[in-house]
Design a binder for these strands. Structure first.
Lengths: 272, 272
DNA sequence: TGAATAGTGTCTGTGAGACAATATTAT
DNA sequence: ATAATATTGTCTCACAGACACTATTCA
């Protein structure tokens, strides 16, 4: 069949000639939450956290998964992600970044479903806790070596562990090929999405200002430092941290008082 | 309807209940090519290049686009990308990295087609020039400021220009929102894919060893430096470049001779 | 010999790592 | 007074930018 114009071609086009598939948007929502301290002198401990949803239907009934849903046929993928954020967690206007597209043909037992994953960051204090009843924040702990990552997720009631193997994809970059080794509580291939997101965040926190998406408007440098530390999983030296961060924040005349120790100035993110 | 087991649920599952869409894999193949010099003393000029394919069918008949194709219903997306590389350019075993998933509902006039884009890097000398007859390498020139990127592509016969607007997505990272401003020779939203890929490569070349995927096994430091320069679009200082690169390469006892100037040692990529 | 590229030496300033020291609060 | 955190000072070392200098080849 021969066409003489684009219009003519489109008119005759039959969309059913290729087998089609379903697309979902799945969202890793990260935040840092406070654990209230019992010692009046000590600061609240901070935890790196992810929001998971309990599955109430098959497949993977009663396991946990990332908030997500199908992308409508006439809906932009990022718009779908925003809609899901609104529906599942009543969140809007937060940091949202496309992470990776997972498309293993067997990743969903129902049929071929390709998942476009997103990473979202939020200051947990801004959440009016209107997250849906089947959603819950889990503290993230990592135990990592060259070959494996052991992830422990804890929401205060339930503790979930899974293990992911990692190997370098090739030798010129630090991209890893992940593989689920142990898991029975997280649905689909979401363990892979979680570790990919954690890696991405750990990298980006070092060379961008991304961390300020998880901070309230006013914060102390100690609080900011502890957010870095809990995400990077290591202690930082105070003077070095302050030097590096100093040109990203501006001091205000407000102070945080009340702890059994020297009060600290509140700072604010300074856009360049 | 209530199910009592995962098996039972899957057996009853009807895949047709959601509207489905088509998925393509599109590949940005970058390389650096030599332009033979007429002055016996001077080195060959290097050009940053991308492989494009002429569309022989509607839609966008007679324009150029990235090599790509539909992902089969039971095919992994990256496998599809590899299959396309093999079919269109007879290339295998090269650097391949998922770039971004483009899913604007109107990006294809036929129907809803979501595109997962990949970036591939190759040493052009390794190509046995068995690229398909409708494919062609285009030299890339960039003219960039805060707001816009003007891209000029030249394959020796044909010159293509397009302009893309850029604006920061948000203030904490350097992620840009791109928008096609002028274009009539590149199909679909592929101008966006091209500029996204160039940005990614420019970034990654600075903090990874990714560049060695575009180099032959043996090369001089001058050649390597000129590859960096042509991708970054700026001159580098020799001593600084040599210092930075020195722990990534190893000197061999081979030499490149024949130019009207001091011969240089050949080096090789050194894996850590 | 001269054009062109290859390769080294060195000065300077920036900035991170490390550790020490001082400051300030609530109980 | 003391525990705990806040904040600053300073020494050292690694390294990038800048520029000058030497080395080597072929027509």
């Amino acid at each position: 069949m021969k066409f003489h114009s684009e219009e003519e071609f489109l008119k005759a086009y039959d969309p059913s000639q290729f087998e089609r598939l379903s697309l979902t948007a799945d969202i890793l929502i990260f935040s840092v939450s406070d654990e209230v301290s019992d010692n009046y002198r000590k600061l609240n401990k901070k935890h790196f956290s992810v929001l998971l949803v309990k599955r109430e239907n098959y497949p993977f009934k009663d396991t946990w998964c990332l908030p997500g849903g199908f992308v409508a046929i006439d809906e932009d993928i990022e718009d779908a992600a925003k809609r899901i954020l609104k529906d599942e967690a009543n969140i809007s206007d937060i940091y949202l970044e496309q992470l990776y597209t997972f498309g293993n043909p067997k990743r969903d037992p129902r049929m071929r479903i390709v998942s476009v994953s997103y990473m979202a960051l939020i200051d947990k204090n801004k959440l009016d806790s209107k997250i849906s009843s089947n959603a819950s924040w889990f503290h993230i702990s990592l135990l990592e070596d060259d070959k494996e990552i052991l992830v422990t997720l804890d929401n205060g009631i339930d503790t979930i562990k899974f293990k992911v193997g990692k190997s370098l994809k090739e030798k010129t970059t630090d991209r890893y090929q992940f593989k689920v080794l142990e898991n029975d509580r997280i649905a689909f291939d979401h363990p892979l999405v979680i570790v990919s997101g954690i890696e991405r965040l750990k990298n980006k926190i070092a060379y961008t200002d991304i961390v300020f998406n998880m901070m309230p408007e006013y914060f102390t440098l100690g609080e900011l430092q502890r957010v870095y530390e809990v995400i990077l999983g290591k202690k930082l030296l105070d003077p070095a941290f302050r030097r590096i961060i100093s040109n990203k924040v501006e001091k205000t005349d407000k102070m945080r008082t009340g702890g059994g120790h020297r009060p600290s100035y509140l700072f604010r993110y300074k856009t360049k």
